[in-house]
């Protein structure tokens, strides 16, 4: 148990950021992270025997976010509740434009499908290649390409004010 808690203490912040991007909401991110870690704890000995547990945890995080976590109705309810409160966003009086950009991006992300969000996070946050992303999501490379394209088009429609971030002609490349 101690090594599990050590792992959670050491990696929970990074995992929380990924969970937040995958859900677009802190409450949902908290639930997703809790659900994922409880499932990892269920098989902790086996996971540890396989080496570094983090790749396994991240796989579980993405799988739960895309396929198994929460019903669509429940997610929608959480989104609506989250829309009323945004305490997680920094709000310095002298940085109003930055706050607005974050709010717009967060709301736009929240309106993507879970799989589209997962593709974007894997490609542009985790820095995975298309092949690795396809393997992570158990789908084909062509599906990753099309999901990425559709997700970006959707973001452009939802947040035209962020055109400099992912607008047409803007280089959008994974690092």
């Amino acid at each position: 148990m101690e090594d599990f808690e050590d792992f959670v203490r050491g990696r929970s912040n990074a995992l929380a950021r990924t969970a937040y991007l995958l859900t677009g909401d802190r409450h949902q991110a908290e639930e997703l992270l809790q659900d994922t870690l409880s499932r990892v704890a269920e098989r902790w000995r086996t996971v540890v025997r396989g080496g570094d547990p983090e790749p396994y945890v991240r796989r579980m995080l993405y799988t739960r976010a895309v396929d198994g976590w929460r019903s669509r109705r429940r997610r929608q309810a959480l989104h609506e509740a989250a829309a009323q409160q945004r305490p997680e966003l920094r709000c310095h009086p002298d940085d109003a434009e930055a706050v607005t950009r974050r709010l717009v991006l967060r709301d736009a992300l929240a309106r993507l499908t879970p799989r589209q969000r997962a593709v974007l996070v894997l490609r542009f946050y985790e820095d995975l290649t298309e092949v690795q992303t396809a393997e992570a999501l158990n789908c084909s490379v062509s599906t990753v390409k099309s999901q990425t394209r559709h997700a970006l088009e959707r973001l452009r429609q939802l947040a035209p004010e962020l055109a400099d971030t992912f607008g047409p002609g803007t280089p959008v490349e994974a690092r």
């Binding site: 929970s12 912040n13 990074a14 929380a16 950021r17 937040y20 991007l21 802190r26 991110a29 997680e88 920094r90 930055a98 950009r101 974050r102 991006l105 967060r106 974007l120 996070v121 542009f124 946050y125 820095d127 962020l162 400099d164 971030t165 992912f166 803007t170 280089p171 959008v172 490349e173 994974a174 690092r175």
Partner: peptide, 16 residues
């Protein structure tokens, strides 16, 4: 570095 990556970094900077 892509701008979308930077935007993600910025969005999650203080969420943990």
């Amino acid at each position: 570095t892509s701008r979308l990556s930077d935007a993600f970094d910025d969005l999650t900077a203080e969420v943990a």
